[in-house]
Design a protein around this nucleic acid. Structure first.
Lengths: 211, 211
DNA sequence: GTCTATAGAAGGATAGAC
DNA sequence: GTCTATCCTTCTATAGAC
């Protein structure tokens, strides 16, 4: 077997990578097929040869990136650890992940906001409803000790996740008030510090939460 | 004086309102002058008569909306209240505000992310650097009691603000895991509950924070 | 598979009549 | 101020040669 699978040819990969960069940076509506072609070092016709249309190229990229994001978030909560350990691990790993993919949150959130139907074709693949319940069942004793009922879980989980995601999505807005945040080194070290800040913050809130 | 100011003519207002709606919904790149004209009940030529170009129409809208957002956030922190009272007031008022303007956060965050230079023309108007320091000075005694140093303020303030903003920006992503959130009534009542959840969460975290 | 050339549609902008 | 008609550029997409 000499040939690699057609669906993973070298050119296809180059196009996919270029498209990922451009879409992440400009969004679907702002992206140009020409720019993707340039970045991939080929011409427009070849984009259409491999991916048929802008829509299909976009969906291929979007689907992969959304999955990447969700897997990062959920993988950690599958592990065999206490709830608190999971929180700490999540903040640690997720912030590292986002430092490597700083534009990813904004890209995903915006595309979903502008075109909500975009997830419909993927929702079955992601069916994470079960996971949500599972988290509580797995830690119900520990969580009850913190005064967290099952019905509080959405509020709590959204709060935890926003600790890592929000500063990346809102970086430019933050920079309006704190101009140093435009500097990559400063912003990244701010986010590294945030691992501990967020963990302390959440643990203190849990421990002493009003019941 | 019969005539109202030309700059605030009825038509200009209609266009401005229509543009606001379309830009908020689709973003700059995704918005169409035709759609704005349709929604305003006039034709494209008139858009250009009043606002010259898509760019200028967009900037007019963006500037107003950014200011609206920032003023809502900062106004509260100017008041003569304790820090904790300000937090509670902020969550209460800001969540009410965002329920009325649910697409506003995503719109602003995305446009700034995609085109960071967009704020440059406005930054002077907003000069909020001073405010940031002021907040700490005004409450330094109270904040020290919570174990918050001046250098912790960015982490803390970003956390507070994300409590209200993030769920609106991430609504569609949240809905992937909690489908009920697609329902407006459910989502809004979730956000109303969040006022108390967030306040309790933050106060507990402050009170018992590791020094 | 990859390229050049070009079709064809869409969108922003303007000219000119009323 | 407002409209119709149209220009011109940009962008997606395809035809066809190699």
């Amino acid at each position: 077997m000499k040939k690699t699978r057609i669906t993973d040819s070298h050119t296809r990969q180059k196009i996919f990578r270029a498209a990922t960069e451009v879409f992440e940076l400009k969004g679907y509506a702002g992206a140009r097929m020409q720019e993707i072609a340039d970045r991939a070092g080929i011409n427009k016709a070849l984009l259409h040869y491999y991916f048929r249309s802008k829509d299909q190229l976009f969906m291929a990229v979007f689907q992969v990136l959304l999955k990447k994001m969700f897997e990062k978030i959920t993988a950690i909560f599958q592990a065999d650890l206490s709830f608190k350990e999971k929180i700490r691990l999540f903040l640690d790993q997720h912030i590292d992940f986002l430092i490597k993919n700083p534009k990813l949150p904004m890209f995903l959130l915006n595309e979903m906001s502008v075109n909500p139907s975009i997830t419909e074709s993927i929702k079955e693949t992601l069916h994470y409803g079960e996971l949500r319940d599972m988290i509580y069942e797995k830690h119900s004793k520990e969580l009850k000790g913190y005064g967290i009922r099952k019905s509080d879980m959405p509020q709590l989980m959204i709060t935890v996740v926003s600790m890592s995601i929000f500063p990346f999505a809102a970086r430019e807005m933050i920079a309006v008030m704190i101009p140093q945040m435009l500097d990559n080194r400063k912003f990244n070290s701010f986010m590294l510090e945030r691992k501990e800040f967020a963990a302390d913050f959440i643990f203190s809130a849990l421990k002493h939460r009003k019941k």
